[in-house]
Simulated scan of single mutants.
Amino acid sequence: MTREEDPARRSAIMRAVKGRDTSPELAVRAILRRFAPFYRLHRKDVPGNPDIAYIGRKRAIFVHGCFWHGHDCARGARMPKSNADYWRGKIARNIARDAAHRDKLAAQGWRALVIWECELKDAAATEKKLREFLG
């Protein structure tokens, strides 16, 4: 039996995937500390529980993994070969949930920004995007 076929092993791997304080999120926070350090993390009182929130400015930043949130980059477009129907449905639900959260934020006067994992390859461009969003 190969590694991909062992359901117990696959389940253990998926349980180990973190939902907060991921490497991409930490990278965004490191950039923000240089010019806008007074953010709050994972606020449950803000729709969508954004990764980073500026409460007074009503700005929410979501740091999305390309695979998990269905980005149109190479990594986001890659679909697992095993249990493909499950993953297609899961990612579609994530995309719908993300859109609903952004709509709720907008209805409450918030602005939201999504930083994709693949965007972090160009730190200067990511910093520029963040500065424009918060400026």
Rank of each mutant, 00 (worst) to 15 (best):
R57N: 01
S82A: 10
M1W: 14
T2H: 11
R131F: 04
L120H: 08
C66Y: 06
E5Q: 12
D45Y: 12
N49F: 07
A27H: 04
Y54F: 14
S23W: 08
H69E: 05
Q108T: 00
C118Q: 01
F62R: 00
G48W: 01
K58A: 11
A12L: 14
I31T: 13
D21L: 07
L130D: 00
G65F: 09
P47W: 13
R75S: 03
G76I: 04
M14K: 06
T2E: 11
E4I: 07
P7Q: 01
C118H: 12
A84Q: 12
E127Y: 11
H42Q: 06
H64F: 12
P47A: 14
G76N: 03
P37E: 00
E127H: 04
K121V: 10
D72L: 05
G19D: 07
A12M: 14
T2N: 14
V114I: 14
N94Q: 07
A106C: 06
A100G: 14
R15Q: 14
L120R: 11
S23L: 11
W116S: 08
D51Q: 05
D6M: 04
E127D: 12
V17S: 09
A100M: 06
S11A: 09
L41Q: 15
R88Y: 02
A77E: 13
R78D: 10
D85P: 01
A125I: 05
R34D: 10
D98M: 08
E117W: 04
K90Q: 06
F67P: 02
G89T: 03
P7V: 03
L105D: 07
D122I: 05
K104Y: 02
I55A: 15
R131D: 04
F62P: 08
A112P: 07
H101Q: 14
C73I: 05
P80H: 03
A99K: 15
T22D: 11
D45C: 10
R131A: 11
G56D: 15
E25R: 06
P50L: 07
A123T: 14
R57V: 06
R3K: 07
A106P: 05
Y86E: 12
G135K: 12
I91Q: 03
P47M: 11
A16H: 03
K121C: 02
